[in-house]
Design a binder for these strands. Sequence first.
DNA 1: ATTGAAATCCACTTGTA
DNA 2: TACAAGTGGATTTCAAT
Lengths: 150, 150
Amino acid sequence: MDEVDSAIVRHLQEDARQSNREIAEKIGIAPSTCLERTRLLRQRGVIRGYHAEVDLAALNRHVQALVSVQVRPLNRSVIDSFHQWVRHLPEVLTVFGTAGNDDFLVHVAVRDIDHLHAFLVDKLSDRRDIVSFRSSIIYRRDTNNVLDPL
Amino acid sequence: MDEVDSAIVRHLQEDARQSNREIAEKIGIAPSTCLERTRLLRQRGVIRGYHAEVDLAALNRHVQALVSVQVRPLNRSVIDSFHQWVRHLPEVLTVFGTAGNDDFLVHVAVRDIDHLHAFLVDKLSDRRDIVSFRSSIIYRRDTNNVLDPL
DNA sequence: ATTGAAATCCACTTGTA
DNA sequence: TACAAGTGGATTTCAAT
């Protein structure tokens, strides 16, 4: 991870579909060098993938919420099974397994308030290992798509 | 947003760097059609961008936390200024503006526990509009990179 | 709006230092 | 490890439907 690698990573975070030549020119290296570096970054797992960012409203997901969840008993089997279950629900964007008062924080995006309610009472409430949950509507969200090394 | 558009969006969420021909073939349309559809999706804002996903550990960010923040007084000026300030800090991945007990939830990724502490006491504590904050370490995080319309 | 073909551009491989 | 040149393949444009 030298300066060249960092620059490649930065440019690919900004726009993953720009051409290899373009990135090479911006950095000031040969296109073949840039391509090889990029391949290694991908292979080493520094770059985990390339994804289109989609407008949630265009996917009929006008309401977002953060749902904090407590599960019991607190053992690996319960924690892992809840985590795997919740992360594959179609409403779920991100699952955080956390320390502190809550065991999980789940970021969901649904069609409207009614569907949020349905998600909570029909899906979450059905699980016996969930002790309690509390949800907060999200008014606004901003994500830093390009992160530099610290 | 018909079936073809949805398919394009799905494939680009899965791998934003696969070729246009590849996507066209998987869907069963002409490459030129696929290209035009993709351009329109981008132009209409359905697709907001293409970003490389990077391993946080490779960026020297081994510790993640969720920081819930209360600000006062609760007016637009205070809320907006905090939101804009915090979202541009290098440690911050995502800012959620929420309803409920907490006004903001901030997802941060830092080098280690010491840097988390430094972030909290040196940066957050400096702001007069912050009434209180509470942070939870993140043990695990899973993100759904491909979302279907509801 | 979709397509097929032409032209331009790019990725990938090979060879060399 | 980096670069330069060559080839196969992709993107892009455009005329026609």
